[in-house]
Every structure is written in structure tokens, then in C-alpha cells.
Amino acid sequence: MPLRLILLGPPASGKGTQGRRIAEREGLAYLSTGALLREALEQGGTLSEEIRPILARGGYIADGTMCQILEPWLQTHHATGWVLDGFPRTLVQDNFLRDWLAKVDCEVDAAVALDVPKEDLIARIHDRVECPDCRWSGRRCDSVAGRCPKCGGPAGPRADDDLDNFLHRFDEFVLHAVPVIERYAGLDRLIRAEATGGIEVVADGIREQIQRFIQDGQEA
């Protein structure tokens, strides 16, 4: 059976970097809700007008709006397995996801929670760049003369990576997303990952924990 994983963690914890690696290693589809929202901003229109001021202050998009945005993607990928990066971020969103999956006789297999100290997160946002063309993200030193190493597009700071915005997003994470993490811990479906080491070291650790989780489930 294909895996269905949700990836949770505070801003700048490496969800995008690790989410893509998990998806590639496990042969799963990958969705970054952050990238999806930034694309909506660039496209303009009613949705862009609705979410722009919310994202500018580091707030969470309304649950109903996020669920509406995600549902078409779930309909396309529910049978193949996936990694959801940044969704669900609230218990309401998790209720939607669990109910939606139950209708197609599926469920979330596990939540992967990335743990990084707050002071490390602040240091990361000052060093993070992203390519608006292919959505690559990394450190300034990973870019080449300000260009994306993947597609050659421009690589610069994200608009939401100023300190005040980060601190607000971090508080929102604690308020809304931590209860989701606690729910999956209570269901014995939580994989906690120490995410302060090098990218590949963290990725290898997550992979080992996922494999151990799958093996434990098969033996239960």
C-alpha cells in the first residue's frame, strides 16, 4: 500500500527540503502548501487578494479556504501515496483530511514532525533563498551568483522571511499545528525527527525512522 505522510514543523525547519527527499526516496507525490500559496499570489485574482494580507503578516489561511485549495490535488493523488508539506496545520484541517480520506477508504499513515530550536530557525531565515521559477529553496551559498542551481532562475530571499513575520508564524505554529502533532502522537502515528544536522544526515535519519515505523506496523 502506498504511504500517505504529513510533514509538520515550524517555519524554516526544512519541511520543503526534507519533504521532497522523502517523496523521492519513497516514490510518493509531493505537495508544498507554501509553494502552492505563493503561486496563487503570483497568479493574481480573487484568491490572491484574499490571502495576500494574511500571508504578509504571517497568519494562517482560513481552514475552509485551505481545504478547498487542497481537495482537487487530493482527488488526483489519493491512490498513489503522497507527502503533504504544511497541511494539515490545524485540527480543523486534519479533521477535513481524515474525513476526506475515509470516504475513499484511506487514512494518514504517519505524521513526521521536524524538531529545530527556535534560535536555529531564526538563523536559517536570514540565510534562506528560493527560486520563483522552479520553487527550489536553499541557502545563499547554494546559489550561484544569485541564480538557482537547479534551473538558473533568480534565487533571492522569500518575501515572508523577515523576523517579525517569522515570529508571528512561529507563534501560529505553536498555537495551531502543535495540537495536530500531539494528536498523531496520541494515535502512535508520529515520527519525530531531529532536524538540526546536515540535510543528508537529517534525510537519512528520517528514512530510517519511516522504515522502522513501517516494519513495526507490519509486525503489529
Score class of each variant (00 low, 15 high):
Met1Asp: 03
Met1Leu: 08
Pro2Ile: 06
Leu3Ser: 03
Arg4His: 09
Arg4Pro: 07
Leu5Asn: 09
Leu5Phe: 12
Ile6Val: 15
Ile6Lys: 10
Leu8Ser: 11
Gly9Ala: 04
Gly9Arg: 00
Gly9His: 08
Ala12Cys: 14
Ser13Phe: 07
Lys15Asp: 06
Lys15Gln: 04
Gly16Met: 01
Gln18Ile: 04
Gln18Leu: 07
Gln18Trp: 00
Gly19Tyr: 02
Ala23Val: 01
Glu26Asn: 06
Ala29Arg: 14
Leu31Lys: 12
Ser32Lys: 08
Ala35Phe: 05
Leu36Lys: 13
Gln43Ile: 00
Gly44Lys: 05
Thr46His: 13
Thr46Ala: 13
Thr46Arg: 15
Thr46Lys: 14
Glu50Gln: 14
Arg52Met: 04
Pro53Arg: 02
Pro53Asp: 05
Pro53Gly: 06
Leu55Asp: 11
Gly58Ile: 06
Gly58Tyr: 00
Ile61Lys: 13
Ala62Lys: 15
Gly64Asp: 15
Gly64Val: 01
Gln68Ser: 15
Gln68Glu: 13
Leu70Arg: 10
Glu71Phe: 02
Glu71Thr: 13
Glu71Met: 08
Pro72Ile: 05
Trp73Leu: 04
Trp73Gln: 08
Leu74Thr: 07
Ala79Cys: 07
Ala79Tyr: 05
Thr80Asp: 12
Gly81Asn: 03
Trp82Phe: 15
Trp82Tyr: 13
Asp85Asn: 10
Pro88Thr: 01
Arg89Met: 05
Val92Gly: 07
Asp94Glu: 08
Asp94Trp: 03
Trp100Thr: 08
Ala102Val: 10
Ala102Arg: 14
Lys103Gly: 12
Lys103Ser: 11
Asp105Asn: 15
Cys106Glu: 15
Cys106His: 15
Cys106Trp: 09
Glu107Asn: 14
Glu107Arg: 14
Leu114Trp: 01
Val116Tyr: 08
Pro117Ile: 07
Lys118Tyr: 05
Glu119Asp: 15
Glu119Val: 04
Leu121Gly: 04
Ile122Cys: 12
Arg124Leu: 10
Ile125Val: 09
His126Leu: 13
Arg128Cys: 02
Arg128Lys: 06
Val129His: 13
Cys131Ser: 09
Pro132Cys: 10
Asp133Val: 10
Arg135Asn: 13
Trp136Met: 05
Trp136Thr: 08
Gly138Asn: 11
Cys141Val: 14
Val144Asp: 12
Val144Ser: 11
Ala145Gln: 14
Gly146Ala: 05
Arg147Leu: 10
Cys148Tyr: 05
Pro149Glu: 03
Pro149Lys: 08
Gly156Lys: 11
Gly156Leu: 03
Asp161Met: 07
Asp161Phe: 00
Asp162Glu: 05
Leu163Glu: 15
Phe170Ser: 01
His176Cys: 09
Val178Arg: 14
Pro179Ser: 04
Glu182Asn: 12
Glu182Asp: 11
Arg189Cys: 09
Leu190Phe: 01
Ile191His: 06
Arg192Trp: 00
Ala193Asp: 04
Glu194Gly: 11
Thr196Asp: 02
Gly197Arg: 13
Gly198Ala: 12
Gly198His: 09
Val201Tyr: 00
Ala203Gln: 10
Gly205Met: 01
Ile206Asn: 04
Ile206Phe: 04
Gln209His: 07
Gln211Pro: 00
Gln211Ala: 12
Gln211Ser: 07
Phe213Tyr: 12
Ile214Gly: 03
Gln215Ile: 01
Gln215Lys: 11
Gln218Trp: 04
Glu219Asn: 14
